[in-house]
Amino acid sequence: MPIQRFTKMYGIQDAKISPMLTDPASGTPTYGTPIDVPGIKTYEISGEVEVKTLRGDNKKLDSFSALTNVQVSITHAKMSLDVLAAIIGGTVTDSGTTPAQKTKWGLTGSGATFPAFKLEGVTPPNGTDIIGGDVHVVMHKLTCSAFPDLGFAEEDYRIASFTADASPLISTDEWMDVVINETAVAIPSS
Rank of each mutant, 00 (worst) to 15 (best):
M1Y: 09
R5S: 14
T7L: 03
Y10S: 05
Y10E: 11
Q13Y: 01
D14A: 10
A15C: 08
K16A: 13
I17G: 08
I17K: 05
S18T: 09
T22D: 00
D23T: 03
S26T: 15
G27W: 07
G27T: 05
T30K: 12
P34M: 05
I35S: 01
P38C: 04
P38W: 09
T42Y: 09
T42E: 10
Y43S: 04
I45D: 05
K52C: 01
K52I: 06
T53D: 11
T53Q: 11
G56L: 09
N58F: 12
L61Q: 09
L61A: 02
S63I: 01
S63R: 13
F64H: 07
S65H: 12
A66T: 14
N69G: 10
V70H: 08
V72K: 03
S73K: 14
I74C: 07
H76G: 02
H76D: 01
A77E: 14
A77K: 13
M79I: 14
L81H: 10
D82M: 12
L84G: 08
L84V: 11
L84Q: 11
A85Y: 10
A85E: 12
A86D: 05
I88K: 14
I88H: 06
V92A: 04
S95H: 10
S95N: 11
T97M: 04
P99T: 12
Q101W: 03
Q101Y: 06
Q101I: 13
K104N: 05
T108L: 11
G109W: 11
S110Q: 13
G111P: 09
A112M: 15
A116P: 00
A116W: 10
F117K: 03
K118R: 14
K118H: 04
E120I: 15
V122Y: 04
T123G: 02
P125Q: 08
G127S: 07
D129M: 13
D129N: 15
G132D: 06
G132I: 02
D134K: 03
V135G: 00
H136Q: 09
V137N: 04
V138G: 03
H140C: 03
C144Q: 00
S145W: 08
F147E: 02
L150F: 14
F152S: 15
F152P: 00
F152E: 15
A153C: 04
D156M: 12
R158E: 14
T163R: 14
T163F: 02
A164E: 00
P168Y: 13
P168S: 10
L169W: 01
S171N: 07
T172I: 03
E174L: 12
W175C: 04
W175D: 07
V178A: 09
N181E: 13
E182M: 05
E182W: 06
E182G: 07
T183L: 12
A186C: 00
I187G: 01
I187V: 06
